[in-house]
Design a protein around this nucleic acid. Sequence first.
DNA 1: AAGTTATCTGCAATCGTTTGTAGCAACGAA
DNA 2: TTCGTTGCTACAAACGATTGCAGATAACTT
Lengths: 352, 352
Amino acid sequence: MSNVTISDVARKVGVSESTVSRCLSGFNVRNAEAIRKAIKELGYRPNLVARNLKSGRTGLVALIVPDITNPFFASIVRGAELAAGEDYMIQLINTGEQPEREEWAIQRMMGQVDGIIYVPSQEDSEAMTDVTDRSIPLVFVDRLIKNFRNIDSVLADNLTGGEMATQHLLEHGHTKIAHISGPLTSTPGKERAAGFARALKAHKIKEDSNYFVESDFTVLGGYQAMMSLLSLPTPPTAVFVANNQMTIGALKALKEKAIKTPEKMAIIGFDDHELTDLIDPPLTVISRDAHLQGAIAMQTLLERIKGGNQFPPKRIKVDVRLIVRGSCGSTCRHRETSTSNANKVLSASTRS
Amino acid sequence: MSNVTISDVARKVGVSESTVSRCLSGFNVRNAEAIRKAIKELGYRPNLVARNLKSGRTGLVALIVPDITNPFFASIVRGAELAAGEDYMIQLINTGEQPEREEWAIQRMMGQVDGIIYVPSQEDSEAMTDVTDRSIPLVFVDRLIKNFRNIDSVLADNLTGGEMATQHLLEHGHTKIAHISGPLTSTPGKERAAGFARALKAHKIKEDSNYFVESDFTVLGGYQAMMSLLSLPTPPTAVFVANNQMTIGALKALKEKAIKTPEKMAIIGFDDHELTDLIDPPLTVISRDAHLQGAIAMQTLLERIKGGNQFPPKRIKVDVRLIVRGSCGSTCRHRETSTSNANKVLSASTRS
DNA sequence: AAGTTATCTGCAATCGTTTGTAGCAACGAA
DNA sequence: TTCGTTGCTACAAACGATTGCAGATAACTT
């Protein structure tokens, strides 16, 4: 509602609009003082929309995430924001994992933002095909859409993560190990499940389909999945849960059934949480630097916005690490193992 | 980067730009079919920036919060987004409780958004005075800035909350009760501390300045505060912590010192958390509906955007309630007490 | 003092839409 | 036939800034 425009300022000082404009952009101007004074007195503030129309850029980046209430995504957003600096602001959209809403959001964002950082819910999404046509920079984070082969992405090393988690349970002597997976239509769901399978195979343990429950990354889903595992004739003695929300649900189920952890049931989660070392027992997890992941995504996007399609699509994977606490049985506390020690480096290794 | 404009479409069909424009806005147009076809073929998408310039509105609302990583603020944002519907999108800014960044953000937002929802960090902020001059709709959430008397706000009933928390500890027989407060320069910090004081007074317990630690709403702050309480010659037997982050810190301190809760130290927090019933012992808290608070804020803002300053400033307070778990001693589990039962109603009671 | 350069200024076009106004055709009513 | 109405359409003027261009002024040079 900026009532006062640049021409008001110009008129008051007695110069042309262009002079005021140039004064604002830092050029040398004769009546600079008077102009600044008039600007202050009138309370003039440049209309960014008009400026954007002329310049063709908006200084806005859309961040499309499933649910900001999930601390993991909140960290991604925070990391991205910090990496954006003062040049770009963030437009946030929660999709609730609903593909229709994702499509709506993308459609609506195009032509209003300079780029999009996108956490899609499903790997196969036909509806998104026309998005690529439009030449708006896009970066996938955490998950991707399969038929978009030429798009930048910043994922985690989910395969190794799933493998490490399962391996850890195996090392504690478990053989009846279950996996509560995310949707197998999503990148992390699929990859973590693959890591689970690979670790079992390496130890020559045949997969029991009863011990594999595909869920939906939600608290409720995790709760139900754990409940169904507990109702098996011979329940597992250890569970690898594929994300933080489902782990919470699973823990609630264990608590409700008064099942002792780790004695009766060892549990390992994916993605850490500020409270994980306060719960009973402290939760062992596979973790990664979500902040970093968001920052890299933003950095990649900004390069793409500046540089266009000059460089080939990047496919970055950030490292995961094992944080051992108490929920898988006795080990020295707080041992941390990382897939590499380049974890904190912003220029993370680009693989494959 | 929308290369193709409305005039490209017009030329292709052989009509004027205005006809295409009217077709898009739903008017009856002779060659509607041909126009729609051309739009599809050319991949035309209206330039929202240009449209906004003409219409004078951007369809954007800024949400300025301290830290989206705090689940409480994440819920506020989520609630606000849902209340915004499809008409308004959300632009998110984290301030990290830094007043300079808040000021920068506000300055930058004005002229780019239609309204601002704002969680300020300090009650006295001189720097913000020129913000009111500009007639851009603004709503305070959770906290406010004092010298802005004529601005809408959606706060919580902090006074009652602080009182209820302290009262709860008193009912468990505690007399040596400490308070880890937020910054007394912030609305909730001040009001919750006032509630604490009022409850003590009502029970004729004189305040011990050793038992009052002013902290900063952060995990680290809560940790340090609890540590300092524990190092007192006669430590308190119960603590009321003024927000969720500090409570986490305080719990970490207790855990580190291996102090049993609630036997050696009862603790009650402010604001709930998905994990509070999984920690050991489950945490008793004062809680409120953050989702609702965000939704009401957005609703108020939209009314203000539409209606201007026709109606007087609203000062809304949402109710708080006590959620009893285990951290204050044995009571029946999961008892809930609310200041009123109108909690879930979107049109919350407007007081004072 | 005259010529050359450097510095600043205003005009007008532009970014991509929307929208008021006037013109035009078609139609029914008198 | 003529007049008023209706229903579309095109033209052009906005919205509020930026910017190339040419003209004006000032500041040097010789």
